[in-house]
């Protein structure tokens, strides 16, 4: 069974604004998540510069022995990425779905301040539901 370990959202300056643990395997403390987020932000920027192809938008998938990291960057520079078990399918779909939830429940919320950490009950609720496995399978139709 493929599993999702964790989900991150980073703002356009590389600050972590949302982090959610879904597995038990890869629990990290707050400092580590912040570090990973800003590290990924820089690596993503460097990869754009290093790419031999012109018009590259940065790394979309990082495959390691023990995990896969899928990344999706929105037009405004907010990055969504998910760390999951190697070979997990339909992660692009999931990230797009999370992006959709972000635009609905975060950006349309009058109490959310742009670029600040996300603390929205409805967003949390919907992301948790979205990440549940049957939901992922459903998205992959």
């Amino acid at each position: 069974m493929a599993a999702i370990y964790s989900l991150y959202i980073i703002n356009k300056s590389g600050g972590l604004i949302y982090y959610k643990d879904h597995g038990t395997a890869s629990r990290m403390d707050t400092n580590d998540t912040l570090r990973l987020a800003s590290l990924w932000h820089s690596m993503h920027a460097i990869s754009q510069q290093l790419s031999p192809v012109s018009g590259c938008f940065g790394v979309e998938l990082l495959e390691a022995d023990t995990f896969d990291l899928h990344c999706f960057q929105s037009l405004t520079g907010t990055k969504f990425f998910v760390v999951c078990e190697p070979g997990t399918q339909n992660m692009e779909m999931l990230l797009k779905y999370v992006y959709e939830l972000y635009t609905d429940y975060v950006l349309k919320n009058p109490f959310y301040e742009m670029e600040m950490p996300i603390r929205c009950e409805l967003f949390d609720l919907n992301v948790t539901q979205g990440v549940q496995k049957d939901r992922v399978a459903l998205l992959g139709r």
Binding site: D104, Y105, K108, N109, P110, F111, R119, C120, E121, L122
Partner: peptide, 14 residues
């Protein structure tokens, strides 16, 4: 529909 009330606002309802 899209609004989550922050905890510090108590019982406020849009």
């Amino acid at each position: 529909r899209f609004i989550s009330i922050p905890k510090d606002m108590g019982t406020f309802n849009c």
